[in-house]
Design a protein around this nucleic acid. Sequence first.
RNA 1: GGGCGUGUAGCUCAGUUGGUCAGAGCACCCGCCUUACAAGCGGGCGGUCGGAGGUUCGAGUCCUCUCGCGCCCA
Length: 848
Amino acid sequence: MPDKPSLDGIEAKWVDVWDESGVYHFDRSKSREEIFSIDTPPPTVSGSLHIGHVFSYTHTDTVARFQRMNGKAVFYPMGWDDNGLPTERRVQNYYGVRCDPSIPYDPDFTPPAKPDPKKQIPISRQNFIELCERLTVEDEKVFESIWRRLGLSVDWRYTYATIDDNSRATAQRAFLRNLARGEAYMAEAPTLWDVTFRTAVAQAELEDRERPGAYHTITFHRDGAEPVRIATTRPELLPACVALVAHPDDERYQALFGTTVRTPVFGVEVPVVAHRLADPEKGTGIAMICTFGDVTDVTWWRELQLPTRPIIGWDGRIVADPPEGLDSPAGREAYAKLAGATVHTARERVVEMLRASGDLIGEPQPITHPVKFFEKGDKPLEIVTTRQWYIRNGGRDAEVRDGLLERGRELIWHPEHMCSRFEHWVGGLNGDWLISRQRFFGVPFPVWYPLDDEGNPIYDAPILPDESQLPVDPSSEAPKGYTEEQRGKPGGFIGDPDVMDTWATSSLTPQIAGGWERDPDLFERVFPMDLRPQGQDIIRTWLFSTVVRSHFEHGTLPWSTAAISGWILDPDRKKMSKSKGNVVTPIAMLEKYSSDAVRYWAASGRLGTDTALDEGQMKVGRRLAIKILNASKFALSVAGEDTPVDPAAVTEPLDRSMLAVLADVVADATAAFQGYDHTRALERTERFFWDLCDDYLELVKARAYDADSREGASARSALLIALSVLHRLFAPFLPFVTEEVWSWWQEGSVHAASWPSVEEFRSAAAAGDPAVLAATAEVLRSVRKAKSEAKLSMRAEVDRVVVRGKQAEQAGLCRDDLAAAGRVAELTFESSDDTELRVDVTLPQAEG
RNA sequence: GGGCGUGUAGCUCAGUUGGUCAGAGCACCCGCCUUACAAGCGGGCGGUCGGAGGUUCGAGUCCUCUCGCGCCCA
C-alpha cells in the first residue's frame, strides 16, 4: 500500500497486468446458460474516435463487467468496421490517390511521399485495396490502444474486421444463402444514384436537405385548344417527360384526363393521367412526370405503367442519344444542345429554349424545398435505371414486413420506447434493401456471369461459387470450369464488378464474431447473443439489417436485448458530429481526468438519454476515484490488511446499522444493473460511499483504533466488509482504481471477484437498524453546524450536547462514538414523542 | 406536416404505482491546515417543477390544450 496513493500511471499499469493475466478471456468451455454474449458495434476506423464512442462503449463495458462478476463467461469481442466508402475517402486523401479499375496492377507501386489531395494519382483497384488495408491496420492499432486505456474488458483474441477473410466469407455465404432462398435478387430498376461517387444509394442512407430552387411555369400544347400550364423545378427533365398528372378529383383537369398534350420545344405527345399523389395545391395542380426526377415519378411510372425516357447518365450528365419517342427533327436538334451537359447547364439551356419559343410563362419563382441527398454526398441524388442486387426487407412484401415487426416486438428494448423507432422505420419502407455499391473497398459479390457469343453478360444465369471456396474475388479469380484467359471474352465470363454495402457485412456481426459455419461449437454457445448495445441513430440501419439477416438465416432474433445509448451533445446541447466540427476526441479527456473519471461521466448518462459533454462530471469522477484511494488506505491502515473479514465480529449497533444500509444498496444496485439501469447502480453506490466517508468513518475512527476491545474489533470488521463490498460495487464503473485498491489487500483481480451479495454479511446486517446510523449522523451534523456557525474548527471541544426526540434512543446507542467524533464532554439523550430530532449544542464561552 | 423524446435551483441531472418530493452534485458565499484525503472537510444561499386549464381530499407525478428544444421521418 503506497504512502501517497495516486491515479498517475494507473491505466498503463493495469492494462498490462490484465493483458498478461487474461482476466477478460472468454471461457468457451461454458454452456450457453453460463455465457453472456455481446454483439459489440464495430466502430468505423476511418475516422477518429470521438467522445460519443467512449460514452456508449462504457455503458456496454459496465454491463459486461457486472455479468462477469456474476459468474458469467462473458463473450465480448471487438470489431472494426473498415470496409466501405469512409475508408476509400480517407485513403484518397491520405495517400493522394484514386481508384481507376481500368488501370492494371502495379506490384511496385509506392504512394507519393508528399500526397497532393487535389492531384490524385490514378491507381489500379488492387493497388487501391492494398492501401486501404495498409491504412486500416494502422488505424485499428490506435483504436485498440484507446479502448484498452479506457478499460474496456474486451477479449482481444476475438477481434474481427469487416473486411477480413472471415467477414468476407461470412458476408458472401449469407448472401448466397439469401440468393438460394429467393431473399436476394437482382433487378434492373430506377435507383437513387449519387453522381459524385457514382454509386447506388439505399433508403437508409438518404437525407433531406433544404435547397433553393425555382418554379418554372411552362406550357404544353394541345391541338385546337388552350395550352396547359404546369409548374416544375426541374425544367431540364422536359425531354424525359412521359405524362402530365393531376389529382383525380381536381375539377380543373377533368376534361384533360385521357387526352394527350405535346411537350414544348421537344414536341413529344404525352398523355394526361390522374393519380392521388398529385397535389392540387402545388404549382398549377398539374405536374409533369419524368423518368426520373424524384421518387414520386418512380411511383407514378410504376403504377401508371408509363414508358421510360431516361436522359441522365451515371456521371450525372445528359446522355448522348435522345430517348425513345423523342423523334421529331426539331426535338432532336434541341436535344443535341443538351447532350453531354451537366444537369445544371442543361437546365439553363432548356430555359433559354423555352423562353425563345414563348413557352416559359413569366420568370422562375424562387422557392426553398427539400432535396434528397446521399448522407455522405454533396450533390443532389439523381435517379438512374441500373442493375442492382437487393435483399428483401418487407419494403414491398407484407408478409416479410409483419415477420420483422414481430421480431421487433420480441426484442427487449432499453429504453422501451426505442421499439417505436424500429416499427416506424419498418412500416415506412418503400422498397427492398439495395445492397450493391459501385465501389471498390468492400466485400465483392461472389458471382460471375457467362458471356454470350457477342460478349454480353447473361445475367439470368449467374455462376456461383461453392461455400467452401469463400471468400472469393470474382474480379481476380475465375469461376470453376473457366480459365482466367476467358475473362471478358465472348463465350467466357465476367465477374460481378460491384461490392456490397457496408451494412450487408456489418448486419452479420453476430455471425462473424460468433463463428457461424466456421466454428459451430462456438456459435452454438454464443448465438443468439444476449445483448446488442448501440446508438439510436443506427436502429434503422445496423439493428434493423441485423434482424433481417438473422430472421432469414436462423429464424430467430440475433440477440434477446438491445440497449440503446443516447447522443452526446456538445456543451451547447448540439448533437456532436463530425460535420458540425464540434467533435471532442477522447484521448485528451482520458489524460486530463483519468480513464475512471471519463467512465464515471459516461456512466452517469442513462440509456437512451442524450447527455451533454460535461467536464464537471469528469472532475467529480476524478475526485471520487481519489477518494476511493484515500478512504481505502485509511480503512486498511486502521483495520489491518490481514484482519479476517468476519461478520460475526460485528456486534455494535452503529456498525450493524451501517451494514444494514449497505445491504439495501447492494440489493438496489443489483436490481438496477439487471434492469440495465447502470446509472442508478452507480448513484446508489456513490451516495452510500460519500456518506460512509463523511459520517460513519468519522464516528468509528477512534473506536477502530482500539486494538484490544470487542467494540474496536466490531468497527474494524464492519469497515473491511464495507470496503470489500464497495470495491466490487464500483468495479464495473471505475475498473482501474478499484483494481488498485483491491490489490492492496486481496488476492486476484476484483474483476474476477464475485458480485457482492447480501448473503456475505446478512448475519450482521439483519441485526442492524438503519435508523441508528441515520440518527447518529444527524446528531453529528448538528454538532458540526454549531461549530461551523461559531466559526470554530471541527476539532473544537464542545461542553454539552442534549439530544431530544423519538430517535434520541437510537443515537444514544452510539454515545461514545458521538462523543469522540464531536469532541463532546457531556452528552445526554432524552427520549420523547417528538418526531423531529432536536439537538442543543453548548459551546465553550469564547474567551476575551 | 407526422412520429419519438424532452423541458425541475445559474449549470448537469434524480424524483418508482399521485400522499415529508421540492432533492443531489457542480458553481457561488461563509468558515476550518481536522495525523485517509486542502485535488480535502464543515456549513449556507438558491426553484410558483415551461405555460394554461382539468381530474382529485391532495398533482412535479394523471388528462387536455399550448409554447420551447432535440432527433427521426415526410
